[in-house]
Every structure is written in structure tokens, then in C-alpha cells.
Write a protein that binds this DNA or RNA. Structure first.
Length: 849
RNA sequence: GCGAAAGUGGCGGAAUUGGCAGACGCACCAGACUUAGGAUCUGGCGGGGAAACCCAUGGGGGUUCGAGUCCCCCCUUUCGCACCA
């Protein structure tokens, strides 16, 4: 009876109870709030690792867990390598969902947000993420957003914040303005995928990001440690093209002033002698004047506009057929004085360039298509050189000739020039004669930051009847967002209905003034939050510049590729403005960027409607935080999508149990004290274990320093554990020092991935110091080398045999051994050996005829 | 349409520089221990074949002594851009 109890106890003790162990260490970790704190005035090299801050939507999802598991492993690894690590976390806590929740749950946005932050923070702590919570940034707190306002004033002073009436994307469901980026390809709202976005004209605040377009584009070249994909996306987004603006004067007629001109933007001024019409966007300001005297024309343009709007809503823009109307008016080509007809066409975008183009059907495919439809003249002015292979392909009966590899014809004084040269000369000519100038046009638009919503940073501006637009004086910041408001879905900001917020006095004249009621786009919050982490409690400034010098740029930023454009361009913009303000020195915020893949389930994105949502809480409860973390790193390389499978995490749970059991069974005082056999060469088994250990340390270390394929790091550790199991019966015969070294190294290697189990084992090993700062194990390349290696022997590239030789066996010996192998001899019978290729350490290939 | 990435067992994936394809894990099969096993341990596990061997990294060509890896063409999937003058 007593014996049975003893056995039961042993079995129970060998089984790893993740829940108990994790709870125990969770409580210990909570007792020391400085556990993960970055050092101030440290002499160590710094390392700033950052994961994108979450929106506090309510609960963490597996995508967060994966993102943070990557960053946490890296932070812990860097700590163990002696770095002063900054690893902070915060909350992107302004934004629309809080208002939606307010309406549907009747909970104030602030309360809802703070409750979610509480939940998610608890989840993060339970998952064991090593954040310096003392530096937590919550963007909806006045001590943070007051600096948004401060920056806004600075931007305004520098002419980088301005107000203009503009046609904006309006989501009737959100009842707010959307940035272009927030409009989906199908013309619907990014939050309401079935709600078509409308166009409205409103006074809006803009940030002049276009002033930095050139630098934002150029400096992409510096971001060598960013994924090429992200750089390409940003490059396309900024969309630079060099060309010339050319003024076409209107041919005199009717009521239009003779001085009126139409400016077109072109990258191919060399083709201008082939221009056979001008094409205006339907929204072009001159269109109204041009069509004023002709109601039928007016009508056609109106229909075109309506059709475009509809196409935009349906997402078919770009697919509607090109068509247009002839206004019956003419403009003068400044190069040759020719009269060209002015058309209005649906394929001309008002948002790009000047909203007007010169149409050269012979040398632009779109113009060609249009010209064919309306039987406009196709007039070639570029010819390929007769020697060029392009020459045979030219056929103006079927398509335009668009390459710049050619020579000008029928182009007045420019005839005979090569395209590239002509572009340069003709631009100069236009400038000299005052009807044009070289220009660079960007696709990038200024950043509209106004939102007609409540839950955001109030824009610190006032409107005085006498003095006009007046910035709130710095000393009056923050403009605090009032708590008591009624939130509705109707248009306009709820702040506009709040007299105590709205009405104030003008700081200039003392008279009555009205506050701006728009709030800022939340991308403002996330454009500079990572600077605040470096100096989170500063009351006098957004941060101290010297502190920023120490920590920046961020060494490693980790997040989803969905932020490749917006957040990461706005952040780069903000950094450059702050540099120009003189408060920071770095040109770029982020040195190295990593974009992790999505977590999916059954091949689809997790979503409530599909019922395939896996929640971190459930996983922690069933398998433990360590298992959830390791699985999210093990199931796929971090940059690829990860298909979540519960059976997979069970495998990790088993692995952790195996590690634990190994330690429980094989840690004993006798092992720790038994002396090594003196002067004797270690046994083959001992050498083998030692070799495996050094190989494992190498593999895991290499993965951290290189590709971040933690799936292979973890499998390396699994292999080590498997090998220890394979010799488990013999472990007591191995040198105690080696066993201790293997066990200690194993714990150290687990520490970045499974901090809870690692701490438990560390304690079991009787280690004194903190595991968090314990030095990462090192390997000896000599000890990692195999003593004997298997060499593949091929005959004509086909595997025929394997031989085992000493790792340092010479070529001749290897060749001789290979050729004397029975199977090889058989394969060589009756053949003539042409040559023998020996790749040391790898294989022998015998080439025969 | 343009651009990028990817395509390897039943599944997730490994093979970092051209050198033994399938590490590690899941699932599955067999065995051991057991009153029991949804615990644990051991072994097996790409396909064909009795075996020798043969076939196999989306398909087809090529370079090479040797190709998952390099080159060309095609197919599929995912992502980004999409009248940008």
C-alpha cells in the first residue's frame, strides 16, 4: 500500500503541470515590477525591440500572441547577450470602435477602452511577455495626446498643417471622413465592407506630407533591413514621376477670358508635336466654363461624373470604357501654334497631375484607344531607329508606339533628336519661353487628419470672428477631451453640440471664439508613440532629445504587413519633421523591420462569422502560455502565414512535458558531485552528447542572428532532448560536469521561448542568479564537429552507397574507400571511369562511361 | 493587365553556399508497460516493387559530374498595384 502511494506520487511529480508552475512564476514575476525595466545611464550597448502597439479592442487574438512571442524571444535573447534592452508596450486607444461600443453597449468610450486595456494587459502578463510596463503609453490619456496637440501647433508654425476645403471620402455608416487609404478597392469603407463611400466637400485639416515626398522616397534606399516588399509598396504609394508642366492657351472665343490657360502634366513632352487633342477630367474647374453655353454638353459631363461615382462605388473604376465629349473649343499648342480640340474624358483623373493631359494617340496606348473610338488623328512623331528590333513591331494601325527608344520626326526644330535628349531640350525650351517648367509629380497626397468624431485628440485650433484661425497657445495645452458627451451616429462631431467645449475666448483679442471640433486621425498617435516610450513620464516635452539619441533608431520593429504603407509612412514623415524641428537627430525611426505572417485557421482568416476563432485565454488554460508561445513560433517560419491546429500545440505540450520529466529524473545530488573520470578520454556517448549540445547552441544562436526561423531553432532543441532520451539509461555514467552543462544550456536556450518552464528548471538546477540576465550559452566549433561522417557515393549522380570516414579523412582515402565499396564496384562493372569528384565531407561522385 | 512571393509526404514544415530530399512536429500503424489509456516509452511511416532496384520537390525544357536550389517557358495560389499622363 505504501509502495503504491509512493509510485503514484512519483508519476504525479514527473508529470509537468503547466498550470501550477506558470501560476507560481506568474506571481513571482508580478512581485518585481522592475524585472523587465530598461536601464537608465547604462554602459551596455542598447537594443530597442518593439512590437506594433495594439488597438484595445477587447481581447488579444492569436495574431497578437505570435507578434509578441517573436519580439519577446528576441528581447530575452538580447538581454542574455548583455544588451540594455528597451521592450515597451502601449495602447493605440483612440478610435472609432470605442464610439460604436458606446452606442451599442451604452458604455462611455473611455470606460470601454480602459476596461479592454485592463483585460488585454492581464492577458499579456499571463502570457509572460517581458514588457517594461513603467513606460506604458496610452494614447487616449491627456499626458500623451497633449503632445499630439503640441506637435500639431509646431507643424502649423512650420506651414505643415493647413486647412482647405476638399472633396473627401465620407462613410455614411461611420459618419466620418475616411482617408484614401481607408477606402477599399471596391469603393467601400474599410470598417463597413458593404457601405459605399460617398464624396463630400468639407473644410479639413491637412498635414503637408507631400513636402517630404522626395525624401521619403529617397531614404527608402537607406532602409536596407526592411523587407523589399514593404519598400516597393511605399515606393508605389509615393509614386514619383518626372515630367513637364505645359501651358496651353485657349483659342479666343466667346466669353472666356483670353488669358485662360490649361496646364497639362506630361512625362513625354518629346511627343507634343503629336498631340491631337487636350483631355480634361470631368471635375476640372474649367469644364464648367467651357460647357456653360451648351446645356446639352453640360448634361453629358454631368452624366460622366455620375457614372464615375457609381463605378467608384462598385470598385469598377479602371474598367469602365474610355469615353468623352468634344467641347468644341480649342487650345493652342505652344510649340507649333496648332489649334487642338479640347475634350472632356472619363479616364482623366482630377487627383493626379493637373487633371488635364495632352493626348498623343500615336505614343500612348490609352490615348490611342480613345482616338480610335472617336476617329481622332494618330500622328506619329517618334520613330524607332531602323536598326532597332523595335522597328519591325511598329504598326500604327493596331497600337501606339510607346518606348522612348526612338528619334523625333515631324517635330519642328527638334526633329532628329533622340527621345531622352528631346525631353530635356524641349523642357528647357518651354521654360525659356515661359510656357512650362520641369516638375516632379507624386501620387502621394497630403494627409487629411480631420475626423468628425469624438474619441480622438482634439485639434488645438480656435476660430475667432475677428482674428480668424488662431492656434491654442502652448500654455493652454492640453485641450482636454470632455468626458460627458452624447454619442450618435449622425454626421458631425459630438463636440460641436457641447457649448462648454465649443465656446471659448480668443487669446489674441479676448473676444468670443469657437473651438475646432474635429479630432485627429489616430494614425497621428501611432506616428511617434515609440519616441514617448524612451521618456514616458516627461511633463515638459514629448521626450528628452538626449534620451532619444541613445535609444534611436529602433533596432527591430515587428508587426503585420498591413501597416506597410500608412503607419510606416506617417511614422517616417513624423520623424523627418521632428528632425527638422531639431528635437531628434535620426532621419529614420526604424532600422530593421520584420513583418510576420497572419495566423489563420483551416485556411481562412479567423473570424466570428466563420466560427474558427482560437483565443489565447483558451490556449493558456488548456496548454499553458509557454506551449501557446512556442507553437506560434514552431508551426511556421515567422514571416509566413500560420495555420493554427490544436493537435499541433498538443505536440508542444508533450515536448515541454518531456523536458520537464528529463530534468526531474536526472537531476540528483549524486550526479552533481560525482567526479569526472580522471585523465580518461570521455566515452563515445559523452562525446556524442557534447557534440550535439554544441551543434544545438550553434543552430539556435544562428537563427537568432540570421533568418529568425525559430521553427528550426525549436526543432534543434527537440533533437537535443530526443538524443538525451536515447541515452537516458546511461546518463548516470556520463561526466557530471557534462550533464550539468547540457542541462544548464538547455534551460538557457528554452528561456526566450518558454520562460515559465525555463524558470522552473533553472530553480531546480539550483541556479542562483536571474535567468533573465544569465549569459547565453556559447559553442565551440571544434566540439560541434562530427568525428566520423557519412559520405554519399554516387555513380553518375545516382546514390549507390554510403561510407563512413573520419571527418578529416583525405581525398585519396575517401576516394579509395568509395571505389572499393561492394555496391559501387557492382555499379562500375564493365564501365570506364571518366573522373571521380570528391567533395570533402559531403560525397563522392564517380563519372563513368 | 503589371509587379512580388510561394508551390516539397496524409498535414505544418526542414534541406542557410548547387552535393545523401523529407530534419522536427502532427496524424496514422505496430509493440511495450498496464485493470485501463485521450498517460508514457520503443519502433515504423513519400510512392511502386518479393527483391535488386525504379520513380518522386506544380508541369515542360536547359546548364552541370550533380538541381528542391541556377536559367528559359507554362500552370496554380496568395499578396500588392491597377486608366498615375
Amino acid at each position: 500500500m505504501a509502495r503504491e502511494t509512493q509510485e503514484n506520487k512519483t508519476i504525479r511529480d514527473e508529470r509537468y503541470d503547466a498550470h501550477n508552475v506558470e501560476t507560481k512564476w506568474y506571481e513571482r514575476f508580478q512581485q518585481d515590477p522592475t524585472l523587465y525595466a530598461a536601464e537608465v545611464n547604462s554602459t551596455k550597448p542598447k537594443y530597442y525591440v518593439l512590437e506594433m502597439l495594439p488597438y484595445p479592442s477587447g481581447v488579444l487574438h492569436m495574431g497578437h500572441v505570435r507578434n509578441y512571442a517573436i519580439g519577446d524571444a528576441l528581447a530575452r535573447y538580447m538581454w542574455m547577450n548583455g544588451y540594455n534592452v528597451l521592450h515597451p508596450m502601449g495602447w493605440d486607444s483612440f478610435g472609432l470602435p470605442a464610439e460604436n461600443a458606446a452606442i451599442s453597449n451604452n458604455t462611455p468610450p473611455r470606460e470601454w477602452t480602459l476596461r479592454n486595456i485592463g483585460n488585454m494587459k492581464a492577458q499579456m502578463k499571463r502570457l509572460g511577455f517581458a514588457y517594461d510596463w513603467d513606460r506604458e503609453v496610452t494614447t487616449c490619456f491627456p499626458d500623451y495626446y497633449r503632445w499630439n496637440q503640441w506637435f500639431f501647433l509646431k507643424f502649423y508654425e512650420r506651414g505643415l498643417a493647413y486647412r482647405k476645403k476638399s472633396r473627401v471620402n465620407w462613410c455614411p455608416n461611420c459618419a466620418t471622413v475616411l482617408a484614401n487609404e481607408q477606402v477599399l478597392a471596391n469603393g467601400c469603407c474599410w470598417r463597413h465592407e458593404a457601405t459605399p463611400v460617398e464624396q463630400r466637400d468639407l473644410e479639413q485639416w491637412f498635414l503637408r506630407i507631400t513636402s517630404y515626398a522626395e525624401e521619403l522616397l529617397r531614404d527608402l534606399g537607406k532602409l536596407e533591413d526592411w523587407p523589399e516588399k514593404v519598400r516597393t509598396m511605399q515606393r508605389n504609394w509615393i509614386g514619383c514621376s518626372a515630367g513637364v508642366l505645359i501651358d496651353f492657351k485657349l483659342a479666343p472665343s466667346g466669353s472666356l477670358p483670353q488669358s485662360a490657360t490649361i496646364t497639362v502634366f506630361t512625362t513625354r513632352v518629346d511627343t507634343i508635336y503629336g498631340a491631337t487633342s487636350l483631355q480634361l477630367a470631368p471635375e476640372h474647374p474649367l469644364v464648367a466654363d467651357l460647357t456653360a453655353s451648351d446645356p446639352a454638353l453640360r448634361d453629358q459631363v454631368e452624366r460622366m461624373l455620375a457614372e464615375q461615382r457609381k463605378a467608384k462605388e462598385l470598385g469598377d473604376i479602371g474598367e469602365i470604357e474610355k469615353h468623352g465629349v468634344n467641347t468644341g473649343r480649342f487650345a493652342i499648342n505652344p510649340y507649333n501654334g496648332e489649334r487642338v480640340p479640347i475634350w472632356v474624358a472619363n479616364y482623366i483623373l482630377m487627383e493626379y497631375g493637373t487633371g488635364a493631359i495632352m493626348s498623343v494617340p500615336a505614343h500612348d496606348q490609352r490615348d490611342y484607344d480613345f482616338a480610335k473610338k472617336y476617329r481622332l488623328e494618330v500622328r506619329p512623331v517618334i520613330q524607332p531607329r531602323p536598326s532597332s528590333e523595335l522597328a519591325s513591331q511598329v504598326d500604327f494601325a493596331t497600337s501606339a508606339f510607346t518606348p522612348t527608344d526612338g528619334v523625333l520626326v515631324n517635330s519642328g526644330p527638334f526633329t532628329g533628336l533622340q527621345c531622352e535628349e528631346a525631353i530635356k531640350k524641349m523642357a528647357e525650351y518651354a521654360q525659356q519661353h515661359g510656357f512650362g517648367k520641369p516638375t516632379i509629380t507624386y501620387r502621394l497626397k497630403d494627409w487629411g487628419v480631420s475626423r468628425q468624431r469624438y474619441w480622438g485628440t482634439p485639434i488645438p485650433m480656435l476660430y475667432c470672428e475677428k482674428d480668424g484661425i488662431i492656434p491654442v497657445p502652448e500654455k493652454d495645452l492640453p485641450v482636454v477631451l470632455p468626458d460627458k458627451v452624447e454619442i450618435t451616429l449622425s454626421g458631425g462631431s459630438p463636440l460641436a453640440n457641447l457649448p462648454e467645449f465649443l465656446n471659448t475666448t480668443c487669446p489674441k483679442c479676448g473676444g468670443a471664439a469657437r473651438r475646432e471640433t474635429d479630432t485627429m486621425d489616430t494614425f497621428v498617435d501611432s506616428s511617434w508613440y515609440f519616441y514617448r516610450y524612451a521618456d514616458a513620464h516627461n511633463q515638459r516635452a514629448p521626450f528628452d532629445s538626449n534620451t532619444i539619441d541613445y535609444w534611436f533608431p529602433i533596432d527591430q520593429y515587428i508587426g503585420g504587413v498591413e501597416h506597410a504603407i500608412l503607419h510606416l509612412i506617417y511614422s517616417r514623415f513624423w520623424t523627418k519633421v521632428m528632425r527638422d524641428m531639431g528635437i531628434i537627430k535620426n532621419d529614420e525611426p526604424v532600422k530593421r523591420l520584420f513583418t510576420q505572417g497572419m495566423v489563420i485557421k483551416d485556411g481562412a482568416k479567423m473570424s466570428k462569422s466563420l466560427g474558427n476563432v482560437v483565443t489565447p485565454d483558451t490556449m493558456v488554460e488548456r496548454f499553458g502560455a509557454d506551449a501557446a508561445r512556442i507553437y506560434s513560433l514552431f508551426a511556421a517560419p515567422p514571416d509566413r502565414d500560420l495555420d493554427w491546429k490544436d493537435s499541433g500545440i498538443e505536440g508542444i505540450q508533450r515536448f515541454l512535458g518531456r523536458v520537464y520529466r528529463l530534468f526531474v529524473r536526472n537531476i540528483s545530488p549524486s550526479l552533481g558531485t560525482s567526479a569526472d573520470p580522471d585523465g580518461r578520454r570521455p566515452s563515445a556517448e559523452a562525446r556524442q552528447i557534447q557534440r550535439k549540445l554544441h551543434q544545438t547552441i550553434k543552430r539556435v544562436s544562428d537563427d537568432f542572428q540570421g533568418r529568425w526561423h525559430f521553427n528550426t531553432s525549436i526543432s534543434a532543441v527537440m533533437e537535443l532532448v530526443n538524443q538525451l532520451y536515447a541515452v537516458e539509461d546511461e546518463i548516470s555514467k556520463l561526466p557530471a560536469k557534462l550533464v550539468a552543462q547540457v542541462e544548464k544550456s538547455l534551460v538557457l536556450m528554452l528561456a526566450p521561448f518558454a520562460p515559465y518552464l525555463a524558470h522552473e528548471l533553472w530553480e531546480m538546477l539550483g541556479e542562483e542568479g536571474s535567468l533573465l540576465r544569465a549569459p547565453w550559452p556559447t559553442y565551440d566549433p571544434e566540439l560541434a564537429k562530427e568525428e566520423e561522417i557519412e559520405i554519399a557515393v554516387q555513380v553518375n549522380g545516382k546514390l549507390r552507397a554510403r561510407i563512413i570516414v573520419a571527418h578529416d579523412a583525405g581525398r585519396d582515402l575517401v576516394e579509395q574507400r568509395a571505389l572499393s565499396h561492394e555496391k559501387v564496384k557492382a555499379a562500375l562493372a564493365g564501365k570506364e571511369i571518366v573522373k571521380v569528384i570528391v567533395v570533402p565531407g559531403k560525397l563522392v561522385n564517380v563519372v563513368v562511361r
